[in-house]
């Protein structure tokens, strides 16, 4: 039984970087559209908004990229036979405890970016909440799912 505090695999940083770029591109596209309308029709309002939104996109991109190592360093999880613990952040620290006995189901998701990095997202669902582990290797995901579901069954039988 793994009782160690685990870190997400290194590849997740690539996924986060890519997410940052895509987010920035989407925001930037909106800004660019606004800018194009403003410049071609000589509407200063749209022009100003366009530059502003492009600026926001750049700031978002830089902030998200800079924060990736921080996010990775302080995003950890621990699975024991009683509960799942998630830890996030250093300056704004979040600790989440999900007792295995409360787990209703475990959901595995994989979008195109995650597939590219050969990672899988795990959502641990309780009757009230859903908690995500952003990405782990498919083998780990499968193991975790099996473990949580097995433990959840055992824990429930005890009730």
């Amino acid at each position: 039984m793994e009782n160690e505090t685990e870190q997400l695999p290194r590849q997740i940083t690539h996924f986060w970087q890519l997410t940052a770029v895509v987010t920035a591109i989407i925001i930037g596209a909106v800004g660019g559209g606004s800018l194009a309308i403003g410049l071609s029709n000589n509407l200063s309002f749209f022009t100003v908004c366009g530059w502003l939104i492009i600026g926001i996109a750049l700031v978002t991109l830089i902030a998200m990229l800079v924060l990736v190592p921080y996010r990775w360093r302080f995003w950890t999880y621990r699975i024991s036979d009683r509960d799942v613990e998630l830890h996030k952040g250093y300056f704004f620290r979040k600790q989440i405890v999900i007792p295995i006995a409360r787990v209703q189901n475990v959901q595995l998701d994989q979008g195109p970016f995650l597939r590219w990095q050969k990672l899988q997202e795990i959502a641990i669902v309780t009757a009230a909440t859903s908690h995500k582990i952003d990405g782990v290797s498919p083998e780990t995901a499968e193991q975790l799912k099996e473990l949580i579901m097995k433990l959840a069954k055992e824990a429930r039988n005890d009730l």
């Binding site: 300056f91 704004f92 620290r93 989440i96 999900i98 007792p99 009757a127 909440t129």
Partner: peptide, 30 residues
């Protein structure tokens, strides 16, 4: 209590303060 969340920023930690959320099921959602 379906899950529990503790939030504590570095600055709150220095002052020994923190925030807590208890998640319970109510109606059709949490």
């Amino acid at each position: 209590v379906q899950s529990l969340l503790v939030k504590q920023s570095k600055w709150l930690q220095q002052r020994h303060f923190a925030s807590l959320t208890l998640n319970v099921r109510a109606g059709s959602e949490g």
